[in-house]
Amino acid sequence: MRHLRQRYPLGLVGGGASAYGLSLIMATILRLKDIGKVWHIERTKEEVMALGGISLDVEQGEFLILVGPSGCGKSTLLQIVAGLEEPGSGTLEVTRAADGQKQTGMVFQEFALFLWRTVLQNIVFGPEARSVPKAQREADAQKLIDLIHLRGFEHRYPHELSGGMRQRVALARALANDPAILLFDEPLASLDAQTRKVLQVELVRIWQETKRSCFLRLGPAGSRKSCRSGFQDPGASQVAARPNCSNTFRSESGKRWTVH
């Protein structure tokens, strides 16, 4: 028996970089067409629709925020975009780099740093896997260490860093592969309020400096808490904002779609 349980609505709103007065050449680098995903729960023989009918174009340099109550499929969508999960239906097109390399880089919620690698070794993991010569990957990593302001900490192990520092290492590690799209899975959720504020600013700065598309997933708690520092919650499940900016960006002015 097929039993499709409808889940919560999912909201997503994006703002083109041009809306912020940045002059970037706009090019679609990610195209989602009618993406759907159904989870089969073995124990109860239930089928739960996690995602349905998601279509979206992401342009270069865009900053998108995924919001919605827990269980609405934010995480699933992010995993699909990252290529860590197969979409159940629909198509996903990611513009490939010239060398055919993967174009997304994920920053995980709990940072997911390799505990046995120093800051530097964590950052070079991606290039190392792609067999970039050692001298080159370490020189590139040094630039990233400057970008995330962790000069002097390169030989520390993750357990010797604060939560905010770990988060920045995770970001640098994702950037080391030079992806066009950065994916963030609740990037601020496991940080304290103070660090969260600092990192919101950092995130926007790094986004502006590196000109990547950013795709953030914020949990219900994350988006609510963020209201005070610039995120505005229009009451429903859609929130659009630029972190740390009083000039909040309402859903109707951006790209917006909802499922159900």
């Binding site: 860590l84 995980f108 997911a112 896997a129």
Partner: peptide, 15 residues
């Protein structure tokens, strides 16, 4: 081993 570490490695392009 935390499964998220395996995911992270995969995401970073490790075979």
């Amino acid at each position: 081993i935390d499964p998220v570490l395996l995911k992270a490695a995969r995401d970073l392009g490790a075979n």
